[in-house]
Design a protein around this nucleic acid. Structure first.
Lengths: 240, 240
DNA sequence: TTGAAAAATTGTAACGGTACAATTATAATG
DNA sequence: CATTATAATTGTACCGTTACAATTTTTCAA
């Protein structure tokens, strides 16, 4: 495999190990070559391999057992949305047809909640985006996003339709760092129900997320209401 | 502070930095001393400090910005249950009075679902634990757990009432490694509703978890149904 | 005063090495 | 044959160093 341009060595090694696991369809608990072999195989230092393995462990691809070896970790169920992958649904639900309908896209003043979470004043501008996502034609979720306009100065329908996050990283060359997510369960309001083609009072899951740049600045506050029929999530638990 | 007995150096340093942040009530975005200072302060090598900082970053206590510094990360809201801390509610909801009522505790054969998730046959024994947890007197969740009896050979009311996980780590000296969690939203059945003192058909969040030892063996499959009025979760998003 | 260039600061990548602890395999013992 | 001790395997902790890339601060010209 050709070495990616901007890829760091340890990231590249992680990718190669991961695709090796995929290619050979390794099962949960199968053992990978020992550290020493990997060092020779990739012609690198121990610490670089260790870093690559730590990355894979964090992603839930492997687990390491001291004195024993490096083993493949495989989650059992598919078609679940990974709550920790910032990159939306595309990856987890790639076998399904995900579409989205834009309901609103405009510059306006933030709600109090949005201002608070974005650390801005009420008179600063934000981009408000409202859309519905569909999975195989059924409603998946209703999504409201507030982008700090000082950071994301321009959005249009095309950007919103594809991937806003991709645009922010590539075109604006900003780096997305981390996020906080808060979840609640509740009952659908009339309006939410009509958007999601469900009945008022039926269950809903609301996920509020605040996304930060690598330098710690919040740039996106969003609130997603899921259709309870479609929403299945998984979360990877690492150490304690 | 005295150095813990079994604590590794980098873990100990992480703890000390964390309590420094707590003690000085540092706010989100406040800068910590630069790497070089920390190295001198703790009289250790750069790699050990880096490892301590990585741990803190993973826990969401700090974030690091290359070329700039190390900054405090603070989540805004309290009273949310951290979905990633295996150690249950005690830590997140310590200001509240959490109690639990044991409904059932017996050795029996697993359900098909439990057998599958624990990687055991249907004729092997498991410990079945069913309990309700209360927060300030209100129902918080209904919890069914299946422990592989080959790994957890004995449980009694006392252990179940305090912390099963603590018992597994301390008394059985097993090490808990990682977990998989799956979430669904749905409507309460009659039985669930009666346990949770809610109405049938009202919203519920179900979290299925499989807990593994460090060596990758699943030992606990549990299914928790939350009272939608009480269930608030947060999740810490790290990198992409 | 503005803005661009240069310098200083500061965290990250990558190398390589020693010692050690947890696990597993093997040999010795009863 | 089961059990216990011993050895081999294998990942983790920790140290120390060089080079580098992202930020911030300072300098200096326009």
């Amino acid at each position: 495999m050709k070495r990616g341009v901007c890829m760091l060595k340890y990231q590249q090694i992680a990718v190669e190990i991961e695709s090796y696991i995929q290619k050979h369809q390794m099962q949960h608990g199968e053992k990978l070559p020992v550290l020493e072999s990997l060092i020779k195989e990739f012609e690198t230092s121990k610490s670089t391999i260790v870093k690559a393995l730590d990355l894979l462990e964090k992603k839930g691809i492997i687990f390491q057992v001291r004195g024993s070896g490096i083993f493949v970790r495989r989650k059992k169920r598919n078609n679940y949305i990974n709550l920790l992958s910032n990159q939306g649904f595309q990856k987890d639900l790639d076998q399904f047809n995900i579409t989205s309908e834009q309901l609103q896209l405009e510059v306006q003043k933030p709600t109090e909640m949005a201002a608070q979470n974005l650390h801005i004043d009420m008179d600063q501008d934000i981009y408000y985006v409202k859309r519905i996502r569909y999975i195989e034609g059924s409603t998946l979720c209703l999504e409201e996003s507030f982008f700090n306009k000082a950071i994301v100065p321009y959005l249009n329908k095309e950007i919103v339709t594809s991937s806003i996050f991709q645009y922010i990283e590539d075109a604006l060359s900003l780096k997305i760092g981390f996020s906080d997510m808060y979840m609640h369960i509740g009952k659908l309001t009339d309006q939410e129900a009509s958007y999601l083609q469900l009945k008022s009072g039926e269950p809903k899951l609301t996920v509020e997320s605040i996304f930060y740049l690598t330098n710690g600045t919040p740039f996106d506050y969003s609130k997603v209401t899921y259709n309870y029929n479609q929403a299945q999530f998984y979360i990877l638990g690492t150490g304690i």
